[in-house]
Nucleic acid binder design. Structure first.
Lengths: 233, 233
DNA sequence: CGAAATGATGAATTGTGTTCATTAAGAGGT
DNA sequence: ACCTCTTAATGAACACAATTCATCATTTCG
């Protein structure tokens, strides 16, 4: 018989269940407090385990964060392909990608923050699953651009990497500004504006159309000249 | 007479000198190790003071970081106006702003990293001097755009804030990608490409020019019609 | 039902930022 | 030159959070 401090009852769950519990708790706490201000003790408490137990399932705090973000990101991207496959036209497809990204940030600002601030900046980021997912995700956008180029709708003399930087950089910069209280955040209008800006920059210059018009009119003038029997100008 | 542990000799310097020493040491250590991996003890050692002394001049570690970045950023922006004032033309001025930003990141990647990761993301960022400096800095770029609009060179139906997000978002996204080993980093070529992309998107659509051309040609046709005494088409 | 294996615990450890009572250096007056 | 008085600098102690690990509880299996 012991009289030491009451030891809490030990619950044994399946590994999967414990991992799920801890990750759910961690996601909530991280969402509320951010990364640095979220003590492991809070996460442990919410997951109904003791601090030390977390280390049985996760290497360290950062690993826990990575897994949480990974889990969320993966689930989120799961149905992108399907949604995208139902949309036709370069402009519409591009708009969807941009709009979806904006919506995601709008829906989960805290998790996006964590991802941008603590995952992207880590030394090991390029070895993360999130990095791969993200790469795969932006590649889809570039594929849309490529298709537009192949169809002759878009300029073919641009660096695709820079187009990607422009689109996603713009979205993220815009969001940061919003998150610190600058302006409004309207995914629909913003998506329209971005597509407009980007496509206007990418579309084959209207000069071609203008020249085309001039060509045709020049021919018309020739016809008129022959009709009138004398030079027009 | 004491036999306790030898107390290091106390050097008394002017307040300014001490602050400068500590900030120089902090900048170096932060540059080398980043923020989180830079212990105060390292900074103290390099500044030839003891850890506790730093807190006589700076509230805490974060405050020290803020002051260091502030100092650097301020010095860097000091001569922007002067350099910019010697450049004419919307395209050239815009290109200079973009190129300068790229160069800065190229020259001080570590400090830029610190700024993006630890200053921008802090709750208090919008009350920082760096925030004000940055605002003032990006405003110059927008002024260039505004001048272009006023001169009739650029579209007037764009959200300036979005243009700013596009330019700086692009630069920073591009840089992040570079810093984690993706592609090359050539400020000159990149600046050209960005200006090209942005301006092509901002320039008044050639359609207008085309319509203008059509208008003038239509009048020419009318003249020819009256000249020929019968309809051309 | 007993013993081995495994999971969970929480007290202890470690590492780091921060505080503060103590001490030394310099300034100013006599 | 000597004696305060003020203030800068010190470094030991503190606080707090991540991480470890010896111990104990629970389950599994023979």
């Amino acid at each position: 018989m012991k009289n030491g401090p009451a030891r809490r009852q030990v619950f044994r769950l399946s590994r999967e269940r414990r991992v799920a519990d801890i990750m759910a708790a961690a996601r909530d706490v991280f969402r509320e407090k951010g990364y640095e201000d979220a003590p492991m003790s809070d996460i442990a408490e919410r997951a109904n385990v003791v601090e030390g137990s977390i280390y049985r399932y996760f290497e360290n705090k950062r690993d826990l964060l990575v897994k949480v973000i990974e889990d969320w990101y993966e689930a989120m991207l799961a149905d992108y392909d399907q949604q995208l496959s139902g949309i036709r036209g370069t402009r519409n497809r591009l708009r969807f990608m941009i709009w979806r990204h904006l919506m995601t940030i709008h829906e989960e600002p805290a998790l996006c923050d964590l991802m941008f601030q603590f995952l992207r900046t880590g030394r090991d980021y390029s070895h993360t699953t999130v990095y791969e997912l993200n790469k795969q995700y932006t590649r889809r956008t570039l594929d849309i651009i490529k298709e537009g180029i192949a169809a002759g709708e878009l300029r073919n003399d641009v660096t695709l990497r820079l187009v990607r930087d422009m689109i996603y950089g713009c979205i993220e910069h815009h969001t940061w500004a919003y998150l610190r209280g600058e302006g409004q955040f309207d995914p629909d209008t913003t998506a329209d504006s971005i597509v407009d800006l980007v496509l206007s920059g990418l579309q084959i210059r209207r000069t071609a159309q203008g020249l085309d018009l001039a060509d045709r009119l020049e021919k018309a003038v020739e016809r008129l000249e022959s009709l009138a029997g004398k030079p027009a100008f």
